[in-house]
């Protein structure tokens, strides 16, 4: 697989990125190079700046310093090639609209201003819904969806965009087993098509299974590379240990670390809503 990346323009290249909210740095001097065609998990404790990093790659934030290149060009010129799956909680599911309508929003970018989606967009949206196993719910009001269904609607919306890079913010957060499997299948399909996926991920146990690259982030970049090379106890301790030095958690990790990869605390703690950008 590594051969394929050689000599190619990386899908995403982040250089010296520093982002701050008020005085607090959310990201400090982060470098990241994501070769085309990998599934990359971004892991790190709460407040590590994971969502912030995604938003910066999308060009939704203005960094204090540094730049982001997408296929060698500024992100503004490459919007069509990126698609984004936000956290489920970031939108109001009481909004009066249907599943199909939300999925069709993925086509708005190429439609541009004023033009309305038509039959073609509708067909594509239905096909994407089919792909995530939601076709028969296409007329359902979004207020009636379960959490897993909401997540799949968002995934279908991203698929409709037919991008080269997929940015996902905690796609596995709080979903049922069925949806989790559906997402995994989808990730594999995307990899087979040579797409790049960058996902904020929480469940450390499943990182080696679902992803092939991993970035360990805690405001600064701790490590990034193929899972086999960088996903080790040393790096995990650097990532989670420093931040939680005062908490009992750190001691626990030290005691139990030899046996397992650091336990997934943040999930049992009710999810990562404090990524600085929330």
């Amino acid at each position: 697989m590594a051969d394929r990346h050689n000599g190619k323009v990386p899908a995403v290249e982040v250089q010296d990125l520093t982002v701050a909210y008020r005085e607090q740095p959310a990201l400090w001097d982060v470098d990241l190079t994501v070769p085309s065609g990998v599934l990359l998990a971004i892991v790190g404790p709460n407040g590590a700046g994971k969502t912030t990093l995604l938003k910066a790659i999308l060009g939704l934030l203005r960094p204090v310093a540094g730049q982001v290149l997408v296929f060698g060009q500024p992100v503004v010129q490459q919007r069509r090639r990126i698609s984004y799956v936000p956290q489920r909680g970031s939108v109001d599911w009481d909004f009066p609209t249907s599943v199909l309508d939300v999925v069709m929003m993925g086509t708005y970018g190429e439609l541009g201003w004023i033009r309305r989606p038509g039959r073609r967009e509708r067909e594509r949206a239905l096909a994407a819904l089919e792909q995530v196993g939601m076709r028969e719910l296409s007329d359902r009001q979004i207020s009636q969806l379960s959490g897993g269904q909401q997540q799949r609607v968002f995934l279908a919306r991203a698929l409709v965009q037919d991008a080269d890079i997929y940015l996902m913010d905690e796609p596995f957060q709080g979903v049922d087993a069925l949806t989790e499997r559906a997402i995994v299948t989808l990730l594999q399909q995307l990899r087979a098509q040579g797409k790049t996926v960058i996902a904020v991920h929480h469940d450390l146990q499943t990182v080696p299974e679902y992803f092939d690259w991993v970035m360990l982030l805690n405001v600064r970049r701790i490590a990034c590379g193929p899972v086999a090379q960088v996903f080790n106890e040393h790096n995990l301790r650097l990532t989670y240990g420093g931040r939680f030095a005062m908490a009992a958690f750190a001691r626990e990790v030290d005691e139990t670390a030899p046996a397992v990869i650091a336990p997934d605390r943040s999930r049992s703690g009710g999810g990562d809503h404090g990524t600085g950008a929330a």
């Binding site: 060009g59 609209t97 929003m105 970018g109 439609l111 004023i114 309305r116």
Partner: peptide, 16 residues
């Protein structure tokens, strides 16, 4: 279409 998108999901609107 724009009002609907930006109301429902401003993040996506910006990204698009």
């Amino acid at each position: 279409k724009e009002l609907k998108l930006a109301t429902f999901d401003p993040g996506l609107a910006a990204a698009l």
